[in-house]
Amino acid sequence: MHGQSEPKEVAWEIDPQFLQARREMFVVLGMFVASFVWTMVVSYLLGYRTPSPEDAIEPSLIWGMPLWVFWGILVPWMAIDIVAIWFCFYFMRDEPPVCYELNTPSGAAMPPATIQANGRSSIES
């Protein structure tokens, strides 16, 4: 994906912060897919049906909620909150703050004229 943008004159490396952020992004999408599949499949199998007369007399409940709501929504919801502990406190990495003042001179590839064309310089002092 990045090979074609490799410049010939200046050697440069892909920012490891970018790679880490991208890795985290894929994990987020994975978590979305997992919760989505769980919720939809379980709710569809247990919740989508025309209720029989017995359902009205003796509905199957867990903690006072219908069985399908418990397994299809509450359980994945709690599961995600637990996975969020892992994601937020053990997986996601801290990055040093980006500082644009330091970055501008070193990323000299961007000609100074472009920066001024954005009309920024006047208010940043």
Binding site: H2, S5, P7, V10, W12, E13, I14, D15, P16, Q17, F18, V98, L102, N103, S106, G107, A108, A109, M110, P111
Partner: peptide, 15 residues
């Protein structure tokens, strides 16, 4: 896209 932009946004900051 121009190499400058790619390098600026995706390259290691301290060159």
């Amino acid at each position: 896209p121009s190499r400058d932009i790619v390098r600026r946004y995706f390259g290691r900051p301290q060159q």
